[in-house]
Design a protein around this nucleic acid. Sequence first.
RNA 1: GGGCGGUUAGCUCAGUGGUAGAGCGGCUCGUUUACACCGAGUUGGUCGGGGGUUCGAAUCCCUCAUCGCCCACCA
Length: 915
Amino acid sequence: IRGKVLAVAIEGKPFLTGGLHPDIPCCFTYKMTEISKAYEPQDVEEKWYQSWLEADCFKADTQSTKPAFSIVIPPPNVTGVLHLGHVLNNTMQDILCRLARMKGCEALWIPGTDHAGIATQTVVERQLRKEKKLRRRDIGREKFLEHVWEWKQKHGDIIIKQLKKLGCSCDWSRERFTMDEDYSRTVIQTFVDLYKEGLIYRGKRMVNWCPASLTALSDEEVIMKPQKGLLYFFKVEVAEEPGTFLTIATTRPETIPGDTAIAVNPKDPRYAHLIGKHALRPLPKELPAEQRKIPIVGDEHIDLEFGTGVLKVTPAHDKADFEIGQRHKLEVLEIMNPDGTLNEVAGADLAGMERFEARKRAVELLGELGAFVKEEPHENNVGFSERADVPIEPRLSEQWFLKYPKVKKSLDAVRDGDIKIHPERWEKVYGHWMENIQDWCISRQLWWGHRIPAWYRKDGSGEIYVGSEAPADADNWEQDSDVLDTWFSSWLWPFATMDEETKKKFYPTSVLSTGFDILFFWVARMIMAGYRFTGEKPFSHVIIHNLIRDAQGRKLSKSLGNSPDPLDLMARFGADGVRFGLMRIAPQGQDLRYDEKQIEEGRNFANKLWNAARFRQMQGPSNPQPDLSKHTLPMDSITVVAQFDSMYARLRKAYEEYRFSEAANVLYDFFWGDYCDWFLEASKPDMQGEDSAKRAAILETMDYVLSGFLRLLHPFMPHLTEELWERLGFHAPTHSEKHANFLMYAALPAEQSLPHLSDAEITDAVETTRELYEAAKAARNLRSEYKIASNKAVRFLLRPKPIWKTCDPAVFAALIKAETIECIEEAPSGTPSVVTQIGDLFLPLEGIVDLEAERQRLTGEILKVEAEILKAEAKLGSQTFVQNAPPAVVAEHRQRLENWITKRESLKNNLETLG
RNA sequence: GGGCGGUUAGCUCAGUGGUAGAGCGGCUCGUUUACACCGAGUUGGUCGGGGGUUCGAAUCCCUCAUCGCCCACCA
């Protein structure tokens, strides 16, 4: 189209009227689409995710010559559905990956899921019981596992689909599952290697037994909870001294039949003389006294202060007692079945009873025997099974254990900064755990998992075979029925997910992002596995984020019903809105309180950006690759670009420290405040103005800032920015020729936007603009004082200072909604005024002004200013300050004082003219 | 019992030595052609208490209080 464009209409409705001057010939072709006023994310997000997938944007190339950046996803449970914690964690990872691509790295993000032994098995068992009234033992191992696999096929990719909705740029072609064939082979081989090295051994030890899941658990899977219970006191007779009784305090009277000693501290004067004698255990009562006779031993570990200072020792059912038993070679008497019921050893009265029932019964029995003394309320810590949420039972059983490899190396790696944990304080926690590390019980009495590659000879010879394949004469052997702890597979995750080629390019990985709750379960173990099996660290940086809590500070949980569904949030606010909203409040090192308001803010910001882009689009086509050096930039443009640069600098710093909320806030504040509230508002008059060069310069500025901002924001809000990038038609140097059209591969903007201007020119513009904007605020304040409607244009008078000469009156007028600004030399009498750095502003409102009120307002101002002056004078009057403070600080105070004094003079002057 | 972290506006939190900040909420005004998922203005704080270092402390040190978390075999 060549000619004069007066207006543009779409379907008969005027669309582009205000933006073009009728006398300016235009030459452009412009594909116009009507843009809706509010951003509607759903279609946009779906569309772009598909486009990225179709163009293979997430696929990492092992042959690439670009520097590598890699992350492995903390594999969510295959049973899982997305919760807010996943959203937080995976958004962070996505941001880092997308940023890396824009920095010119070859980024790989490996996704996958974890088979989650107990969790998955429990879910499937429950379903089986509900739907088919079957228990797993009814159908046998093989059939049961078929059910689990079936279930996994059906539900296993739910969480993966949800991650896609969130916009995660994982390389889905490399999705892994901890029970994949390759992966399983690695797990088994690992076991075999460690066994051969002597680090894995089998032994009968005290383990944490879960009577509900019927399996052993690692120490990490046990959660200590304070419980209100009772401390029971009962007495036992000393066998050698009939009539002498010892009173014992215990929380677990039901284990009395399992007691094989009484222990006292040898330093305890009350009891020391009894050491070596015997006591008569009251239960089971049917046993003859001779069989109830147990030794009284002396042990340093007995606390003289607690209870009566006499401890009953139950080596089979208490960890500490077991150790005392070891020290004194005590008999180990098991009185409990795996499911937590008492067995016949406990005696006829208790046999078959559930453990808590048995406790009550035992107390009754003691009473009947006259051995019961008293009970007291007592609070103690009881270990609960993390999964089943029932008290665990310390139990002696035959299990497989791992002596951790490379402990020292792993400790040093973090201590020496080879692996950095963010925030740093977690390094201490890590160090503490590593220093007190205990052998890891790795066998689980479950079916769902990697079966332990150990075979026992059927002939009872006790011969054990451990290997990655079954022994040749398999018929003579029986495989161990247990499986490995899930974490025994996940600790290999960073490298077991990679083939040789991938490892060469992408291992060690760059960053690992996870919650602090699995620092020991997973992170520490991965480090040790990394050093042991690859000879290298598995990752260089660990980002630890904290828990999301609700507005009341409670943990988010299904049972409390306070756990919002991220899919619902994404449907209502858009994935980008959820991502951004959450990132803005995701500080490190502290739990974050979630409130839907914050997600709403994310959505609002998306809408703000959408409309700012829409505003630009209405002014005509944008320059795909804006170039500021071709224009004479007005002051406001220089300022906003300088603000963009300093925002970008702060953003880089925030990224360096992995401070995502800082990064999000920096982006938010610049765009909403500097760009929209000030720059866009200031530039509006020039959009309709006569000066085409100026208009072009401003449009170029908008293009420059938008193009840069979209790139910087992209990692946080990938869909929306990609959409606007296309709509505005921007181009930038790309890091992938194949994906040149995608914002997601665009190079980041230059760090210096105005290299053609001198520092002085920039500082000058920024300073002047700041004064002008400050003055605008003061003027708006004055309008508001006099209740002038914000849409009403009024006349202002200005007694200018020299700086006014460099300001654009039209801009100022627009900012303060002035009909005219008339420059004057003398303060007019009887007129409300405000004192600013660009001059004294007067608001002539004849007849409306309450002079007395205005006088009071000005007097109040003067008082405030005088207080400031006094403060400043006191400061500068202090010799110690002037002598000791840095000269720059002193100069700053001097300048401040001068400004206050000038202001006071002006105010006084204006007050006088009121009459 | 050991360790770590928090305590700043009504709420959620920034702010690591130089004039106490943001968002939300509250209140007032406004539908002006980017945006009511909006704009303008305004109201909120002796920075948990006490002591110390310093010319100067929300910021560094000590101490107390309080809340939260992690670790630990007082039965």
